[in-house]
Simulated assay, not measured.
Amino acid sequence: MTALLISDLHLHPGAPGVSEGFLHWLDERARGSDALYILGDFFEAWVGDDLLDLGEQDPTGNATLASRIAAALKRLADGGTAIYLMHGNRDFLLGERFAHDAGAALLPDPSVVALGSERVLLMHGDSLCTHDEAYQAFRAQARNPLWQEQVLSMPIQERIALARQLREQSGEANSNKAEDIMDVTLDEVVKVMAEHGVTTLIHGHTHRPAVHDLEVDGQPAKRYVLGDWQPGKGWEIVIEEGGEPQLQAFSLS
């Protein structure tokens, strides 16, 4: 069994190098794998699955891009690869319709899955950044089903404008935050891993790819952090049957 894990592609029409690189990666790298896990922030923003109805009438180009991505994932799924999508802080409104079109299943955050030779905890990672209290307040609101229902009832053009506004506000807020506030809280990491009874955690969100050694309930443990994709460069974790996760960067050219 070969499992591939990726995160934080932030796909959008303004970064065609990443989108085209991902489509090439699907054909050249992911095809033939047993499972693909996408751990959140797959898209830079997602305003609802009805975006797909706009097609070429969407002036932002997001609808056309999303349809291309869904079709490419469906081809991969039809070839025998199980695909799992986890929500991130950018695409938390990603729904069952897109998942169906992509031949994928939505994966709760957090989830424990059997990979390689052990049980592995998968997360997007934003819930681990507990020192960022302002963000955690927004996260609680954004994950509230009633709030989501309210937002999805808005006309789609209003949702597109809202998403743009939220991205701008997030960028301004992050520029004024200390770097350590936007990283995970180690105590929270250990706590969550202990609650799920695992010694391996894989997540994204922070854009700080690395492998961290730590201790959970007196046992040696590891935290793997996926990197974000940029024009020309992507990040993946590969897990072979009976093997340990391998974090690696690769060229998208």
Rank of each mutant, 00 (worst) to 15 (best):
L93V: 14
I181D: 01
F92E: 02
Q157T: 14
P59I: 00
A63P: 02
T200K: 13
A70P: 08
T130H: 01
R164N: 05
H100R: 11
A114S: 13
L85N: 07
Q57L: 13
M86A: 06
D41K: 14
P13N: 11
L5I: 11
A140I: 09
A82L: 10
D180N: 09
P209D: 10
K177L: 13
L65F: 07
I237N: 09
D187Y: 00
L9I: 10
G232T: 10
L166K: 08
H10P: 15
D58A: 04
G21Y: 04
T199S: 04
D228I: 09
R31K: 11
I69G: 00
Q141R: 15
R90I: 11
Q150A: 12
V113L: 13
L107Y: 10
L247D: 03
E195H: 08
A104H: 12
Q136I: 01
A194H: 06
D27Q: 15
L166D: 00
P16T: 06
E44A: 01
N176I: 07
L186C: 09
G232V: 06
G103H: 01
G95I: 02
G171D: 10
I83N: 06
V113F: 14
L26T: 11
I239M: 15
P145N: 06
G55Q: 11
G40I: 03
L166C: 10
A161K: 12
Q219T: 08
R164W: 03
L107G: 12
A173M: 10
D187E: 14
V47L: 00
R97V: 12
A178P: 08
G14F: 07
A210Q: 13
S7I: 11
A221R: 11
D49K: 07
E195Y: 04
D8L: 07
Y135D: 13
D180C: 03
L73Q: 00
S33V: 12
Y84S: 06
W235V: 03
P231R: 04
S19A: 14
A72Y: 02
Q150M: 07
